[in-house]
Design a protein around this nucleic acid. Structure first.
Length: 1003
RNA sequence: GGGUUGUUAGCUCAGUUGGCUAGAGCACCUCGUUUACACCGAGGGGGUCGGGGGUUCAAAUCCCUCACAACCCACCA
């Protein structure tokens, strides 16, 4: 918010950060400032591609469109946390950054919701035409829309709202039609009769992922199929077969053909049943077989049988291949064919093949050129092909009768109880009937070949890399793509059928050779007339994945003529679960349409599980609503929480605790800023009353920002540096030392050089990790730098120095580095600080800070000493812990030079040089002449702690010595490493002797 | 059945090409109410890195094998 708004909201730094007080306003300000839109490019330039965008590198990323009709779930929360962090980072890096939002019409999901609504209102879909239904759902979705967009805003998504694309937008439809037309002209589109998952109640087809597989008890029936000689005629068979004369005959005579093998798995429930099978096998291994046993869970489909299959490697049946069997209850004979589909281990090893009613059997049928005979109609009743006895019956009624008749004929040999998984309509629970339907297919051969080539040439980098090989395997096994769906809510297929023509049947069709079907994009019309011939629009709609596979093309306004400066996308980030459904298809379509990969990198996040690592589901009641967490802890807290510990591609747990940690970090940063701002405020008040001379005098410490920045470097004391170098022999810094005189930094004290080093390290850590999508490490490094380093050490030290110019500079840098991950609180702080201007979102990315590396490293030594003082105090028994002791130092310039700081950080009342003989506890561990000035009594109480120390150091020493005792280690390991070990041993040895000495003194 | 990923502290996870004493957050223990922060500060305990073998001077890391878990694909007549 701008300064006036700040004032209006009384935006003083309160003692705790209150996200809900600032977030909505901050977001509004970002949005209205135009920060989300790619700055250098206006919409016209993009579409007309006026090539004015090359001044800065582009960065483009699309949002996987959430369901326009639904609420965001935890997966969206993670998606936005990742994508928006990337977006903000690259925007600050200076890229022309375009984060493109979207909304999904979510074809089937929305359709189910709407149809339920219709039902509740006492209507059914069959009361309306397809076009009416489409219009109704559109209005329904329109009412619901906006909710999802508000939630995206709450999560802080810095996306270009003006460019939001809905999956049914005109440009999506026209682009989809263009591709379809191209494919049609290229001969890649064909109409084929294939099996679909079909719900007889709703009379609609389902995609595989849209059906429920439920394990339930069932039966497996063993049916006797008699072997016949090929020369036998039906009538002869009838005579010879005594079973048929037992009243089954008449019915059997009228049966023209059969159908359908049942689906689903069968698993034997107990040993008794297995014994039954082995007996069966024994019979069958007889060479003089007169029949074979077929096991089925759906006997009613036998009328559709076109063959029985045996495994070609099954010795029991090898001799029978090519012979025929009589189909029970009918007069038909069908062949015994060899096919791998038959599993010798399962049942009798013989399976009946019903190509028109079972997915596997369909495949077998294709391999062996079997006829497709439908024996169940669209309503789920038996067709006339089952013979008059069975025709018209429901499948359930038919099954009963068939079983009765088989038993009567002595053809039903056995019944096994089994448990198998059955496909159900997930709307109404009706058992799915695999049903033969005419569908539009894409021949994927050329598409997947091209995609495989791109993958194998490493045109796309995958995070995690393993997903690439998964995709390659997928493409290698990819079948043709069924793109038609029988639901009204979707993009109409732009195909028109010549009126009066019957189904064109299976096989390849195209414009030239088949006038039965015409491509025409005018799908707003139900009927068109061309050359005096009327054509009716196909009622089917596209698979939503077909249109959404154009997403990178559509969202970047890519055109054939000009391409798009934002295509290919820099990264495609989405859930790993839609690698095949979406990523694979975008890749195929992208390459087909643009001849370029649609994205340069693919980054896939895994499933977000609940706190116990279980999948979230409504039925389990363990669903975490991201927006609830946002309102409870703030948007930044949620983002930090969900990114913490997250690795790409893995399904990982998530809980409120990590959000709390995020909230605490926000508050920490808030209070850091609050403290610094209060110092700055105080300073500006003071300086108003100071004389000019005193102002100048104190400029380094509390002078005005810019002025001090320019003269800071000079203030470094040469003698101080020299002393430090002498004291600590640190050859690794000798190179860096050369640059010390050129430093232009604002640092005056060691802690300042140190924090500048740490912040600089943070920036390079973030740069490195963000380019490889390592969010866990990024967030962890940020947390550590803000909390453990900046607040706990640097800021504590600055309570002594109050080097305002440096405080301001480091805080600004830290805010910039943190902004991609915690945008709201950093922006709120930025706008609350007294000296900053503009919006943080538009600032350039954090830059490394100048520092004196020797000085920075010296501060590590000082930290060690301070920590040791604190630790020794804590090691004292309870009653002494809270006591105050002076700290005495011998010939130790590091402590001497920083006595005030040491005093502040150790809370020792005095830090003084020793006078005369040392006394108290020597802080031997850090190897300094440092003494905690405690009385003799207290010293004695430290004895056990000291003994523990000696033991623990001894262990370390032993490990090191063991290493050196191995001659091959000394011989083969890198010299530097061996040298390090040698030094380590020396250090430990002298440490132990110091500690022993100390112990002796106490004792 | 095929494939992928995982198994590291009580919990959730880091540990990038083998090499500092295996790290973090939360939880736990001790101390502390100092005017930035109790959404806090100081200190601490806790791991034979799933089991077994191998390669190597050196393995959480590489190889083999077993076990367990999750997910994906296929299948369940």
């Amino acid at each position: 918010m701008n300064r006036e708004l700040c004032y209006y909201f009384d935006m003083k730094f309160t003692s705790a950060y209150e996200p809900d007080k600032f977030e909505p306003e901050i977001y509004k300000e970002w949005e209205s400032s135009g920060a989300f839109d790619p700055k250098a490019v206006d919409k016209k330039a993009r579409t007309k591609a006026s090539h004015k965008t090359t001044s800065s590198e582009t960065y483009s990323i699309v949002m996987p469109p959430p369901n326009a009709n639904g609420n965001l779930h935890i997966g969206h929360g993670l998606t936005i946390a990742i994508e928006d962090s990337l977006t903000r980072y690259y925007r600050m890096k200076g890229n022309t950054t375009w984060y493109i939002p979207g909304a999904d019409h979510a074809g089937f999901e929305t359709w189910v919701v709407y149809e339920r609504k219709l039902e509740q209102e006492g209507h059914t879909r069959f009361e309306y035409s397809r076009d009416e239904l489409y219009a109704r759902v559109w209005n329904f979705v329109e009412e619901q829309r906006g909710n999802m967009e508000l939630q995206l805003r709450a999560l802080g998504a810095s996306c270009a709202w003006n460019d939001l694309t809905f999956t049914l937008d005109e440009n999506v439809v026209s682009r989809t039609y263009k591709t379809f037309e191209k494919m049609w002209n290229d001969g890649l589109i064909y109409r084929g009769k294939k099996l679909v998952n079909y719900c007889p109640k709703h009379q609609t087809a389902f995609a595989d992922i849209e059906i429920d597989h439920i394990d339930e008890p069932g039966f497996l029936w063993d049916i006797k199929y008699n072997i016949v000689e090929e020369s036998e005629s039906s009538s002869e068979v009838a005579k010879e077969n005594p079973l048929i004369s037992e009243g089954v005959h008449e019915r059997a005579q009228s049966v023209a053909g059969g159908t359908r093998t049942a689906l689903r798995s069968a698993r034997l429930d107990d040993d008794r049943n297995q014994t039954g099978f082995s007996q069966t096998r024994k019979k069958l291994s007889d060479s003089s077989l007169t029949y074979i046993v077929v096991s089925t869970t759906r006997p009613e489909t036998l009328f559709g049988d076109q063959a029985v299959a045996v495994n070609p490697n099954d010795p029991r049946y090898k001799s029978l291949i090519g012979k025929h069997v009589r189909l029970p209850l009918t007069s038909r004979t069908i062949p015994i064919i060899p096919d791998e589909h038959a599993d010798p281990e399962y049942g009798s090893g013989v399976v009946k093949i019903t190509p028109a009613h079972d997915f596997d059997d369909f495949e077998v049928g294709q391999r062996h050129n079997l006829e497709l005979l439908r024996v169940i109609d669209d309503e789920g009743n038996m067709t006339a092909d089952c013979g008059e006895t069975y025709a018209g019956l429901s499948t359930t009624a038919c099954r009963k009768l068939v079983l009765k008749d088989l038993k009567a004929a002595g053809l039903l040999l056995d019944t096994h109880k089994i448990s198998h998984s059955v496909a159900h309509c997930y709307k109404c629970g009706t058992v799915i009937e695999p049903t033969l339907k005419e569908q539009w297919f894409i021949n994927t051969d050329p598409l997947k070949t091209r995609a495989l080539k791109a993958l194998k040439h490493n045109e796309i980098a995958f995070y995690p890399a393993s997903k690439k090989s998964a995709l390659i395997t997928y493409f290698e096994n990819l079948k043709d793509w069924n793109i038609s769906r029988q639901i009204p809510w979707g993009i109409p297929i732009p195909m028109f059928k010549k009126q009066g023509t019957e189904s064109a049947g299976t096989g390849q069709l195209n414009n030239a050779s088949s006038p039965d079907w015409l491509f025409d994009p005018r799908t707003n019309l139900k009927e068109i007339e061309i050359g005096g011939v009327k054509y009716l629009r196909d009622e089917d709609t596209f698979d939503t994945w077909f249109s959404s596979s154009h997403w990178p093309i559509v969202c970047t306004d890519w055109t054939e003529e000009t391409g798009s400066p934002f295509y290919p996308l820099n990264v495609m980030e989405t859930g790993a679960d839609i690698l095949f459904a979406w990523i694979a298809r975008m890749l195929m379509i992208g390459l087909y349409v643009t001849d370029e990969v649609p994205f340069r990198e693919v980054c896939l996040h895994g499933l977000v599980l609940d706190a116990h690592g279980k999948k979230m589901s409504k039925s389990k009641g363990n669903v975490i609503n991201p927006l609830e967490l946002v309102s409870k802890y703030g948007s930044d807290a949620f983002r930090l929480g969900i990114l913490r510990g997250r690795t790409m591609g893995l399904a990982q747990a998530f809980s409120e605790d990590s959000v709390k940690t995020g909230r605490n970090l926000c508050n920490k940063l808030w209070n850091i800023s609050r403290l610094i701002d209060s110092w700055a405020e105080k300073n500006s008040k003071d300086s108003n009353t100071f004389s000019e001379a005193s102002k100048e005098n104190s400029q380094i410490f509390r002078g005005d920002y810019e002025g001090a920045r320019s003269m800071a470097g000079v203030s470094r004391s040469a003698s101080r540096s020299a002393r430090l170098i002498d004291e600590k022999n640190l050859p690794e810094f000798s190179q860096a030392k050369k640059n010390v005189s050129n430093l232009s930094s604002l640092t005056v004290n060691m802690s300042e050089d140190w924090i500048c080093r740490e912040i600089s390290n943070l920036i390079s850590t973030l740069d490195k990790n963000l380019s490889t999508y390592r969010f866990s490490e990024s967030v962890e490094a940020l947390h550590e730098c803000i909390w453990d380093k900046y607040a706990d050490w640097f800021l504590e030290s600055e309570k002594l120095f109050k080097n305002l110019p440096l405080l301001k500079l480091t805080l600004e840098t830290l805010l910039k580095a943190a902004h991609p991950f915690m945008p709201f609180v950093t922006e709120t702080i930025w706008q609350s600080l007294s000296w900053t201007s503009g919006l943080l979102i538009n600032q350039s990315w954090a830059e490394p800070l100048d520092y004196d590396p020797i000085s920075a490293e010296s501060f590590e030594r000082l930290k060690e000493a301070i920590t040791e003082v604190r630790r020794v105090k804590n090691d004292l028994p309870g009653s002494f812990k809270s006591k105050s002791f002076d700290l005495l130092y011998g010939d130790d310039s590091l402590i001497a030079d920083n006595a005030d700081l040491v005093k502040l950080l150790t809370k020792c009342p005095n830090v003084l040089p020793t006078s005369g003989a040392p006394k108290g506890i020597r802080l031997a561990l850090v190897g300094r002449e440092l003494y905690l000035d405690v009385d003799e009594k207290t010293v004695k109480n430290y004895k056990s702690a000291l003994t523990d120390r000696i033991l623990s150091v001894g262990k370390d020493l032993n490990a090191l010595e063991a290493r050196m005792l191995n001659p091959r280690y000394v011989d083969k390991a890198p010299k530097a490493l061996v040298e390090e070990t040698r030094k380590g041993i020396e250090e430990k040895k002298s440490l132990i002797s110091r500690l022993r000495q100390e112990l002796d003194l106490i004792a």
